[in-house]
Design a binder for these strands. Structure first.
Length: 750
DNA sequence: TATGATTCCATTTTT
DNA sequence: TGGAATCATA
């Protein structure tokens, strides 16, 4: 057995495992990615496994890209041939390759959740079902749930009205989707699995193709995903799964932790490896995270430990209300920056998106650049979806959802009445809307004006299709579509800020298509469309120097030197819905969520709670979270007014209420120097006073282009540019670091 | 067909 | 409370 440099014994054991099932319980920050990549490298490099016989599945495109990148460094040349991708992307690829065996169209389009909802809504209207009683959203959720369980329309259980309706709609939905040549996200996986169930040929082909299978984040897999990998591995038994049951936070999406917890029962000869050494966080941060998650009953026993420094105590701040909380945390952020942390080092995490607003306001007021992760995705913007709908329509005219989206966008006089008649005609004939459109010219139910307009639209689209046939790429097609439909013109004439932003977005979209044509092998429209629907904003680069705001869910897999978690109050976090059902499973998931949040922190962790909070416009008196009370008091430092009453509940009473010291000027925690000191700066209690003085006395005139300045963290650099305004912001080029935007008060002449 | 009024609803969202 | 989505009305 070779010894990989820099792998600890456990990591090496996992990395060098070759044959047979393997489960790796990888605690937060335990070097999981290293293990995975080294194992693949070992298989290819040492064992001589052909890279294209290895399948590695991740949950995000980002993780897939990262894995591929790291592998190309370890095993040059092989990385391109490996099957690395998300469940969805991998299945899409398989379905294209084996479309016949799996019984899907080769040129299928992929519907995202919005498209799916549009389809369900339309279907329910056609079926004359009461949308009030049975919200399409819920029905769609039922359909998705069924697919996650690997169940078809007839196999869905439940006798309540919603279940019946959902079952009914599900059946019709699949027929309709088929007619449209569309697959939703759930279908991608479900159809592969069904193909394998129904067609032994396909099953055998896939089993033979993949000699080694590796699944990351296995705690987040659902039932079909489990069935998929189990079937694929049934022949070679070389299934390696990696994950952490304590970080399972997607139960509500159908993820089942039993997949990893019971792995040893499903594969009785499985090797079990636990990675418990954490390389990320200080001892105190870990012990706080451990204290919270260890209260869970249903978990694989393990305890994360570290050789890292003890670190500063975790700071817990009590605030009067959510605005106060925002002010206090923003002030603390300022101190961290003064102590030498970069803005990119600091993250603010919260349980729900709605919490971000107050923080955004406070950050804007303090002039601190920030970025909010999540929210509206680029490809979800209306104008982008419009453009993509046109493009999808060209690829597959039977795609009803896309057709209906653009048939009157921009407005071309095809109103509701005409559209409804067209839909009815399609339903009567049992065809796609496009087919109905072809015969609409002879359909007497449309008036002469309507017929003419429908004909014009059909010709317009047919013209685009001819261009596609002629070999035009996505960028060219997009430009043609935007100009010939009058889409650009309408926006230009509107001449508003919003319209300009839309034009800008469309430009960016076309730009990305040009890039795609240049960089990708195929460069085809269908390849582009697939990429775009399976991609999220998480993949977009975020290299600007800013403080990061996001939900805890979005933070999974990331790490930051400084992490703040807001809103540690009962009902908020742990989150409880209006329906006061005490589901212990849900509480355990909240606890895992807290564990994920806390273990994002490398050096400093700050938690806050408010005593009063406005929720849906109503004032609510909050009790601090039980999670706070579960933290060992010698690991924490309490700041601010003590909370009203300690949380009550079934948990063990702590050793008496925590003692909060006066918050005063020190929300960042006393004695910041205790931590290592390599950050150089102190987070002195009075440092924010300097900041306010600095704001009163702008130092703009003292800083000039080309000047050499010193920053506590980045060292000496040269000023590239100075922006006007209060406070003045300076771009400085630090050798070896790059350009940084820095407030002038953090700089001194060098 | 476009706008303003009204009503409804409200965790988390890897694809 | 605030936003999105739907409805009513010119």
């Amino acid at each position: 057995m070779t010894t990989d440099p820099g792998l600890n014994p456990r990591q090496a054991q996992a990395a060098h495992h070759v044959e047979g099932p393997l489960v790796v319980f990888a605690g937060a920050g335990s070097g999981k990615t290293r293990v995975i990549t080294h194992r693949v490298a070992h298989l290819v490099g040492t064992c001589g496994v052909k890279p294209w016989r290895i399948l590695a599945v991740t949950f995000t495109n980002k993780a897939a890209a990262e894995m591929r990148e790291r592998l190309s460094a370890l095993v040059p040349g092989a990385a391109a041939d490996l099957w690395v991708g998300t469940f969805h992307a991998t299945c899409a690829r398989l379905l294209r390759r084996y479309h016949e065996e799996a019984g899907v169209r080769r040129d299928f389009v992929i519907y995202d959740d919005t498209d799916q909802k549009a389809m369900v809504t339309r279907l329910m209207r056609e079926l004359k079902l009461d949308e009030r009683r049975f919200p399409p959203k819920q029905v769609a959720a039922r359909i998705n749930r069924a697919k996650q369980e690997g169940l078809g329309p007839t196999e869905v259980e439940g006798d309540d009205p919603l279940s019946r309706v959902s079952r009914d709609v599900y059946g019709h939905y699949q027929v309709k989707m088929d007619a449209c040549g569309a697959l939703d996200f759930g279908d991608l996986i479900y159809r592969v699995v069904r193909g394998m169930r129904d067609n032994p040929e396909l099953q055998r082909a896939l089993q033979e193709r993949f000699e080694f299978v590796l699944v990351d984040e296995f705690q987040d897999t659902n039932h079909v995903q489990f069935e998929l990998v189990a079937r694929v591995c049934a022949r070679h038994h070389n299934l390696c799964v990696v994950g952490d049951d304590d970080q399972s936070i997607y139960r509500w999406r159908g993820a089942d932790r039993r997949n990893i917890l019971d792995f040893r029962h499903h594969f009785s000869d499985a090797t079990i490896v636990k990675l418990e050494q954490n390389y990320r966080s200080t001892q105190r941060i870990l012990s706080v995270a451990n204290a919270v998650v260890q209260r869970n009953v249903d978990r694989e026993p393990k305890r994360l430990w570290t050789d890292n420094e003890e670190g500063t105590p975790v700071t817990i701040v009590s605030c009067s209300d959510e605005r106060d909380e925002a002010q206090v945390l923003v002030k603390a952020m300022g101190m961290m920056l003064e102590a030498g942390y970069a803005r990119n080092d600091v993250a603010l995490l919260y349980r729900i998106h709605a919490q971000s607003r107050v923080f955004e306001e406070a950050l804007r007021f303090a002039n601190l650049p920030y970025r909010v992760v999540g929210g509206l995705r680029f490809y979800d913007r209306a104008e982008i979806k419009d453009l993509l709908a046109y493009l999808r329509l060209l690829q597959n005219p039977d795609d009803d959802v896309s057709l209906l989206r653009v048939i009157n966008t921009p407005p071309r006089g095809i109103g509701k009445t005409t559209a409804t008649r067209l839909l009815e005609a399609a339903a009567r004939a049992g065809t796609s809307v496009w087919s109905a459109l072809a015969v609409a010219a002879d359909d007497p139910s449309h008036g002469p004006a309507a017929r003419k307009k429908l004909g014009l639209f059909r010709e317009l689209v047919a013209g685009f299709m001819a261009e596609l046939e002629g070999g035009a790429g996505p960028a060219t097609l997009a430009q043609t579509v935007l100009s010939e439909t009058g889409y650009l013109e309408v926006l230009q004439e509107e001449d508003s800020v919003e319209a300009d932003a839309r034009l800008e977005n469309l430009k960016e979209a076309v730009g990305s298509m040009i890039e795609f044509e240049r960089d990708s092998e195929e460069g085809t429209l269908s390849a582009f469309l697939e990429l775009v629907t399976l991609q999220t904003d998480a993949d977009r680069v975020d290299d600007d120097d800013a403080i990061t705001l996001m939900t805890i869910h979005a933070a999974k897999g990331l790490e930051f030197p400084v992490v703040m978690v807001a809103g540690l109050e009962e009902q908020m976090f742990p989150r409880r819905g209006v329906a006061e059902d005490d589901d212990p499973e849900e509480l355990e998931e909240e606890r895992r969520l807290a564990y994920v949040a806390f273990t994002r922190a490398q050096e400093r962790l700050l938690l806050s709670h408010a005593q009063v909070r406005r929720v849906y416009g109503e004032l609510r008196f909050q009790t601090r979270s039980r999670f706070i009370d579960e933290i060992p008091s010698d690991e924490a430092h309490f700041v601010g007014q003590p909370s009203t009453a300690p949380a009550t509940g079934s948990y063990r009473a702590r050793q008496g209420p925590p003692t909060y010291t006066d918050r005063g000027a020190d929300p960042a925690g006393r004695d910041a120097n205790r931590f290592g000191g390599h950050r150089g700066g102190s987070v002195a209690g009075d440092s924010y006073v300097d900041r306010s003085e600095a704001a009163d006395h702008p130092e703009g005139e003292e800083i000039y282009q080309g000047m050499r300045v010193r920053h506590r963290k980045f060292g000496v650099g040269s000023v590239q540019s100075v922006s006007e305004g209060l406070p003045p912001r300076v771009t400085v080029l630090f050798p070896g670091v790059g350009n940084k935007q820095i407030l002038s008060r953090f700089l001194e002449p060098a």
